[in-house]
Amino acid sequence: MSTVILLFATGLGLGAIYFLVASGLSLIYGLMGVLNFAHGVFLSLGAFLGWEVAQMIGSNTWAGFATSLVVGALAGAVFAAVTERFIVQRLYNRHIEQVLVTVGLALAAVALFDGIWGTDPEFIRGPQWLAQTTNIAGASIPNDVFVTISAALAVLLSIVLFLKKTRFGMVIRAGVENRSMVMALGIDVRTAFTLVFTIGGAAAGLGGVLASHYFGYVSPLLGQTLLLYAFIVTVIGGLGSLLGAAIASVLVALMQQFANFYLDGTGDFAVVVLLALVLLTKPSGLLGRRQV
């Protein structure tokens, strides 16, 4: 029983990280129709800069940890905003080309990170408490899982509030629903595009710092590995649906954890099989709308 609880908790933690990456991807795709391959490098940059700053302040202090979260989110947001403004926006409405530039950007950025920080994973440590465990019903659960889950919930909540309560949020929701109608009404959707990229980048950067504590290391390929699962999550959840991404993140992560433990390390296959099943029965994903 304690094993099941442990797997469930760590699965939720992993799902929280997937959600932090997938939420941005899903919003960007929903509004702009762009599959953002550079999303993983936003995450890696957040993780690296967060770690650099944490080291400066003192990696085992809470101040260092808190600052690294802020710096990670900021780094992701700035990188994403610059990418959108100067590269993606130049190829307005040419979806394949937009995908291609993000692919090129990801390639160049990963190579640059390789050059700056080296290709080997760098092992990191946070405040003492994060590395300890808490006993819940006989299972020793690592404390960083709780931090990760609460951060993801906070992000989910603030994105939902932003989308429901603010004017910009309304423009974004309307844009996902019917972009040409919003433009026809004379509303500047381009600001919304940059905004969506910035929000997604911030979530990914935050996810980068949390992921580096969850896995215990940072490396240039950290973001690329997570990006892949985030893609799968967004397809299963339904492209453009935030709630779908949240549900699918948890589903995919739990399945991966349990299959890895009980079915002899077959977690990755279980996820791909799940993807194939979803596509065969409901090609638009769990909560996705049919493409028009």
Binding site: L100, L107, A108, V110, A111, G115, I116
Partner: peptide
Amino acid sequence: QLPLSEPLFILGTLFVLVVL
């Protein structure tokens, strides 16, 4: 020197420029 010693950085940048 740092960017120049990463072939994939040059190729990736070249690719972005070609697409743009």
